[in-house]
């Protein structure tokens, strides 16, 4: 299969993730959308690694997974904290800081 299809797929995933961030209200879902974008990038890396014929992209993908995991830890901590304070996981709820 042509590896460029994976690139296109990754672009779609990235787009879906970005759209998810923009349209979803639940913080967890938004966060998952971000993760989707990261994974889209991962897919692209791997696909490009295949196309370019070197390992760099795959190595990157591993690192990104680790980083994403760390991000999950931090992100969930923050979201949970917000949820506990506000009894809501809506990302539009915390809106004290503006203008």
């Amino acid at each position: 299969m042509n590896p460029s299809n994976y690139v296109i797929l990754s672009a779609l995933l990235f787009g879906i993730g970005a759209l998810g961030v923009l349209v979803r209200r639940n913080a967890i879902v938004v966060f998952m959308s971000v993760e989707l974008m990261l994974n889209a990038a991962n897919l692209a890396f791997v696909a490009f690694a295949r196309m370019n014929g070197n390992l760099d992209g795959q190595v990157v993908a591993f690192f990104v997974m680790v980083v994403a995991a760390a991000e999950v830890v931090v992100g969930l901590a923050i979201i949970v904290q917000i949820f506990r304070s506000r009894r809501s996981a809506s990302i539009d709820e915390p809106n004290l800081l503006k203008y």
Partner: peptide, 19 residues
């Protein structure tokens, strides 16, 4: 959220650049 969003941009751009 925004930082992670921006990181994703960066990363995807990096992927394309790598590509």
């Amino acid at each position: 959220v925004l930082g992670a969003f921006a990181s994703a941009f960066f990363l995807y751009g990096a992927a394309l650049l790598y590509g």
